[in-house]
Design a protein around this nucleic acid. Structure first.
Lengths: 272, 272
DNA sequence: CGAGAGGTTGAATAAAGTCAACAAACGTGG
DNA sequence: CCACGTTTGTTGACTTTATTCAACCTCTCG
């Protein structure tokens, strides 16, 4: 609970931001400590009655754009919650390629895959300056025992991650390129709305290549889909600036198609 | 804790097995009740010290091939552990198609996606006669509080599910058809070995179509890949009977390829 | 203002999906 | 136990889709 963001930064230096690493003391001390009451507040749950007056602190870490929060194989101890900012989580495939798994933002949980074998299976990189809350699993479990609301929320957040991944598998398994890109835009728009930002107009924090990896497509295909959506008037894209003119059209594009069914299968379905 | 498998069966009848549903009492009572000590034994953990002499039972449910364990949208209360048998979990996509998510077998956990909003997001169907242990979440949480080994195992099992799904996303996002099919075979072989069955020769419990859905491929493509592997001598396939001649070759097929990188990306990687 | 990273677009290619026809396996009842 | 209908799996020919490659554009930021 001492020397806040330094420890993390030092372990996984990132070229671009080396110069900014050595002055974490510039954060006010209250920007590095996050009380239990702050946490409960942030998560929208009540304070545990048993700790109403306890001074209990979590680490509140700051990351610059480009820095890694943790990397594949690193020893696990904490899960992280995004307080602000945008990130990407990725895993390295057997043949060395990067696979983007998700783009965490405010309220998202990260690092759960580290629980299983006590080392992270994925890595997380900040796509913008970020504030994260570090929740050591041991602490969390102890707190959960005396605060069932927190306990339930933990399980629900993890379950929700699982559902998100299931949805992703479904999309990758059955949707064509345009439909995937439409899904991405709708998902992002919904997310921004939930965070209180504009659902109609936003800036992409990730590159076309990262979007492609996330969706299982090549960068060129993502770019072409964007251009196509722009052409039909559903959106306006100008490099990373996106505005959505018709979410309905995007939703149609997302829900309608469905390739890869196999025609034998299809005709047999109709046969009944 | 009464009328064991009936309750589940009655709620989700499956045409094919209707005749076998009405006699669940034929199971001996000890085949329907599964003590805490049995559970700990099965999971490979010690008994909680606080309950060394407690008579505590879980439901031990039997399902016939084809029956559904739970369906999408159904109220959540329990997670399930596979004691024996083979199953499939699937979700229905927005356009009505079935997406297979995994093929649970001995030791696997099912239903975690139900925690988030108190109703299951996927559905589970038995592919063979099965024995499942029903673990009501409430009970499990209470037990976990007084038995940290169980608590840790719970978290680890869920985390492991998340990792499995991440791997699946990686494969769907970046591997070609043959490589996916090779992965499927290797995974299955490993799994059988772990359960003490032959890793070299086994019977597929699922159809080509189900494999295709699982891997994001059409049935025809799966069939062609099988034939191809047979042709090069890596395996022998005869309908659902598979024997593996060279796991090494399959592993190569799985690890090597990697399409969908995008050539622009590729040349830029080399440029550095 | 210039270099380099990031993004777009067209043309060619490869990969997987589609359609169709057939074959093998299964199981049900005569 | 065999015959027949149904379901499941295989294979070839063709089409569609997305990737690949290459050239060019455009932002950004140092």
């Amino acid at each position: 609970m001492n020397s806040p963001s330094v420890a993390v930064n030092r372990t996984y230096p990132f070229p671009k931001v080396v110069t900014t690493i050595e002055k974490p003391e510039s954060h006010g001390s209250d920007s590095c400590r996050f009380s239990l009451s702050d946490l409960c507040d942030f998560l929208g749950i009540s304070m545990p009655s048993s700790r109403k007056n306890s001074e209990f602190y979590f680490q509140h870490l700051q990351f610059k754009s480009g820095q890694k929060v943790f990397t594949t194989g690193q020893d696990f101890s904490s899960i992280y919650i995004v307080h602000s900012g945008f990130l990407k989580t990725s895993s390295i495939s057997s043949s060395g390629g990067e696979q983007i798994l998700c783009f965490p933002m405010k309220g998202d949980i990260m690092g759960v895959d580290g629980i299983h074998s006590k080392n992270y299976k994925s890595e997380v990189t900040a796509l913008s300056d970020c504030n994260l809350i570090s929740l050591p699993l041991k602490t969390l479990i102890l707190l959960a025992r005396e605060h069932s609301e927190l306990e339930e929320l933990m399980y629900r957040m993890i379950s929700s991650e699982l559902i998100r991944e299931q949805e992703m598998i479904g999309i990758m398994g059955s949707q064509n390129a345009e439909s995937r890109v439409a899904f991405f835009l709708v998902q992002l728009s919904d997310r921004f709305q939930l965070m209180g930002y504009s659902a109609k107009s936003f800036i992409l924090r990730m590159s076309r290549e990262e979007i492609g990896s996330y969706l299982g497509l090549s960068m060129e295909t993502v770019s072409r889909s964007f251009s196509q959506f722009d052409r039909i008037g559903a959106i306006n894209v100008r490099s990373r600036h996106v505005s959505i003119n018709s979410k309905e059209v995007l939703e149609q594009l997302f829900k309608f198609p469905e390739s890869k069914i196999g025609s034998t299968t299809k005709s047999r379905m109709l046969a009944k």
